[in-house]
Amino acid sequence: MTTAADRARRTKRLRFDAEALKSETAAIVAALMQEYSHVVDKVDLLVRVANREISRDAADDAGIEEVSAALKQVVDVFTAKTKIRLPAFWDLPGMGQVCAAVVRWLYGDDLLSYTDAAFVLFDDAETLRPSTLTQRIRSLIKQGRLTPYIDPRHAQRVLLSEVEQLRLELQAEAQSAPVRDDPD
């Protein structure tokens, strides 16, 4: 037989220590802030670049490398934490657009349209429709062989340096591919 005392013990509500939970939460938040504080510091640099407070022409190699490293860190954190992948990240209001402006600052002369990239990559580009060329580049992006960028002044872009490197890789792949004998 269950007594009133037994029922009271079973139905007794748990009591939580608010101060202990606040302290534990604060410690977790502090650890996260410390983990990502280097990224927060980088945001200021990227915003100054995006606002044209730092001239590309006046930047030395160390400054350009610092901006490039900051961009990579911020993009890595934002895309990992928001689950938003490139190229959609470049369109995000705020940080995505800041990072897109920094990409233009870093690589302005090195950005190519998808069609221009296809002309660099494919010998048969002159014989194909522009939509086919664009689709080929999108396929390479989907495979992870090229990185897409957004330049708000223009259409989607890729880096000339990446395209040239990929062309060399594709040529090496074609040379190493086994030669098939034609049955005819």
Rank of each mutant, 00 (worst) to 15 (best):
E162Q: 14
S113T: 02
D60V: 00
V47R: 11
S176Q: 14
A62C: 00
L112G: 01
A62D: 11
D41C: 01
W105P: 14
R9F: 08
A5G: 05
S131L: 09
R15I: 14
L21Y: 00
M33R: 14
T147A: 05
I28F: 00
T82F: 06
A20H: 14
D41S: 11
R153T: 07
E19H: 07
P152H: 10
Q97P: 05
V77C: 13
G144I: 09
Q156G: 08
M95P: 04
V29M: 07
V120W: 03
L159S: 05
S161D: 13
V67C: 09
A4K: 14
F89D: 09
R129Y: 10
L86I: 12
Q34C: 06
E35R: 13
P93I: 11
P148A: 09
A117Q: 00
V75Y: 03
D91N: 08
E65R: 15
T25P: 00
A5H: 12
D184T: 06
Q34E: 13
D184M: 10
K83G: 01
L21P: 01
E162M: 03
L111P: 02
P148I: 05
R15V: 15
L112W: 01
T82H: 14
R138W: 08
V49I: 15
E19R: 13
L133T: 03
A26L: 05
V158F: 03
E35Q: 15
A88W: 01
K42V: 03
M1Q: 11
Q73S: 14
E169D: 02
A8H: 04
S113C: 03
R52H: 15
S55R: 15
A80R: 04
P87Q: 04
R157V: 11
P183T: 02
Y107P: 02
P148R: 04
F122I: 10
Q73P: 00
L133K: 05
P178A: 05
L46N: 04
A20P: 07
A125L: 08
F16C: 05
A155R: 04
F122A: 06
G63E: 10
L86S: 09
D151Q: 12
L92S: 08
T134R: 15
R145N: 08
R138E: 07
L170H: 13
D44Q: 11
L170C: 07
N51K: 10
A20V: 09
R157N: 04
Y36I: 03
T127H: 15
E65G: 10
T79R: 03
R85H: 04
K42E: 15
L92R: 15
A70L: 10
T2N: 14
R104A: 14
K22C: 15
L112H: 02
W105C: 05
T127V: 09
V47Q: 12
V163I: 09
Q175F: 11
P148Y: 01
Y36N: 12
R52D: 07
R136F: 12
L140E: 13
D76M: 10
E164Q: 11
D61A: 14
I150L: 10
R180F: 07
T25E: 00
S131V: 07
S131H: 08
S68T: 10
S23Q: 09
S68G: 03
A30G: 05
G144S: 07
R129C: 10
E169I: 08
A80F: 10
A20W: 07
F122M: 11
R136N: 10
T147H: 07
D116Y: 05
R145P: 02
L121A: 12
P87K: 01
L133D: 13
F16V: 09
E66H: 03
